[in-house]
Write a protein that binds this DNA or RNA. Structure first.
Lengths: 105, 105
DNA sequence: GTATCCTATAGACACACATCTATACGTCAA
DNA sequence: TTGACGTATAGATGTGTGTCTATAGGATAC
């Protein structure tokens, strides 16, 4: 299920590094991190309700949602003309576990 | 100690988002992630032993080490003409906790 | 002091990316 | 079918970044 051992266990292989870095990169932007937090903390969010609290344009929100979707951190569900987004908790757990420090093991 | 609530708890404030995104960005590069893993998994690493396993030039390694140091994910200690780097496990723990999913709480 | 060796900085360059405006795409309601 | 509305894509633009070569900084040894 997980991609690899925690990064403190042993030197990370190049291919695993690329996979995990892609996930980290998706969250490594302030606007996108806030966007993800909005979705993750509310269970489910309509895309239409994300533009205003972030203070960026609708295409920008759409772009960020695509980035998060591409790495499977959020899932997309269309209902009529609205699109609802939901955080993939399992995927987030993978990342959190991957980053777990030595002391916590 | 921690900067803020986990990102699944409540919508992240803009200033907290910037701080956490900076830390995530430092790890969001494959080479830098491998570099950090090399340091973190070995307790302590001399900078001179990091160039070869990563396959990049010495200045590039030095640059990446600076990025990680700037966000306090690694600490630097000079001993003679050698420089030793060590992972900041506490800081990594902050990040891991911040990313913890809902199911794990 | 001078040479040697490890590390960091300077500068350059190609590429990636966050954001915008303009527009296309899709779905529902008349 | 046509209009309205939510969403996604296209294209442009300025900024950021990963990497390199060349060189400077700084510590030890002779």
């Amino acid at each position: 299920m997980d991609c690899c051992e925690p990064l403190c266990c042993e030197p990370l292989a190049a291919d695993s590094a690329s996979e995990m870095a892609a996930m980290l990169k998706a969250l490594a932007d302030p606007t996108r991190l806030r966007l993800f937090s909005l979705v993750a903390s509310s269970g489910e969010q309509c895309a239409c309700d994300l533009t205003e609290p972030l203070g960026v344009s609708q295409p920008t929100v759409s772009h960020h949602l695509k980035v998060l979707t591409d790495v499977d951190l959020v899932s997309r569900e269309q209902r009529g003309k609205w699109v609802y987004y939901r955080a993939n908790q399992e995927r987030l757990g993978q990342l959190s576990s991957f980053l777990q420090p030595v002391a916590a093991r």
